[in-house]
Design a protein around this nucleic acid. Structure first.
Lengths: 214, 214
DNA sequence: CACTATATTCAACGCTTGTTGAAAAAACAA
DNA sequence: TTGTTTTTTCAACAAGCGTTGAATATAGTG
């Protein structure tokens, strides 16, 4: 077995852990389920990543940085395209909804699993206070600042609550619970991030204007 | 110990379980944590409610029916008030956001815990497919039907996705993660359901009109 | 080849888990 | 009071948990 294969094993552990954590949460997954899924010994996950909590962090961090950097990049690029002018509200929302495009366009099923994991972390009172704070909050502040330029007279409370609504809608989309499939009688699909993405931009933009533009 | 006290013990178990399940999820809570919190023996929870999963169901069902019935009642009452005419979009959204008012107005902290539990169930790919389907889906269908009257020419896909956004924003609000407190620098509070409720109605109404009114 | 470092497995540890049957206590009925 | 039923505790079970140290295999190096 060569170096490449050994690298594959540790990545297989991350992939399986990612999928299982997203589906059942941190406590709903055992190290043995992960190692069985990855077809490795149960001790190997400990060897590569340390304790179970460290493995969870490793899974979360693997794609968090890439996602955060890309998000910021898109936000700033759209600022440059607008050549100094304040960018449009739609552009800001679009940059924020990047995870949806991201998972859609990369065929990688791992990204879809990670999106569900992100939803789990976002909506958990426990994880939100640690993982979201350390990995995503600083990027979000940039969005809020951009929004302040668009709505200079808006109250900060209004701005933050509106952002909160976008964040919630995004989280439920990323979670891919399958509920919309059922409720719509098969007309919509949780996995169809593109459909969610397209409608979300005008929806949220209109909501912002209704609350923050007075 | 009289009958009333014994009733209190079983309810104390439900209350503690509700709080812990909402905070840590089903797998993140042990029977011993629950019984310790309720100051009873471990075996008592089994005696009253059966297995752990049955206890979880009991916790969820306790307030689900009341909430569902009230929701439907409010929706139908607002239909009568409008005296046969199609009710306004704002009225429909208001009826749907009832859980927020519900938890706000009842001083009962148990209701706030239940709201967080509801958020956990809504955003979980596993629980959503069983608990939401059996307890809430039928009520939601009434909302969708009411929305179809408001937007007779809208595509059903648009309607369902817009409902999905409202549902997501509601879920994140119910979860009370404390994130908005941090991001807003203390200007907003997760526990302030009233603030979330007030802004949500115009926000979502505008979103619906932007997507479904063309 | 031999030597070293890394990767992986094996076997087991102490601990916690959900659950249960029997004992004890309390409440109720006569 | 005595007898009966319901409630609560006690003690323990088998199974599963995360974790680890030692043994084995593989890869890299000279």
């Amino acid at each position: 077995m060569n170096k490449k294969d050994s690298g594959l094993k540790s990545e297989r552990i991350l992939d399986v852990a990612e999928e299982l954590f997203a589906l059942h949460g941190y406590d709903g997954v055992t190290m043995r389920q992960i190692s069985t899924g990855a077809q490795v010994d149960v001790a190997l996950a400990n060897y590569h990543f340390g304790k179970k909590l460290d493995l969870f962090y490793a899974v979360f961090h693997r794609r968090a940085e890439l996602l955060g950097n890309t998000r910021r990049e898109v936000l700033r690029n759209s600022l440059e395209v607008a050549s100094g002018q304040p960018q449009t509200l739609e552009q800001i929302i679009e940059a924020f909804l990047l995870p949806l495009k991201f998972a859609q366009e990369s065929g990688d099923p791992g990204w879809k699993n990670y999106m569900a994991l992100l939803a789990y972390v976002m909506t958990s009172p426990v994880w939100s206070k640690t993982l979201m704070k350390n990995n995503f909050d600083k990027h979000v502040s940039e969005f809020i600042e951009a929004l302040k330029i668009i709505f200079p007279t808006a109250k900060e409370e209004d701005l933050h609550w509106c952002y909160h609504y976008v964040s919630g809608a995004l989280a439920l989309t990323l979670a891919q619970t399958g509920r919309i499939d059922r409720l719509s009688g098969g007309k919509c699909h949780s996995s169809d991030f593109d459909a969610a993405y397209q409608r979300m931009i005008p929806f949220m933009a209109a909501g912002f204007r209704a609350v923050c533009e007075k």
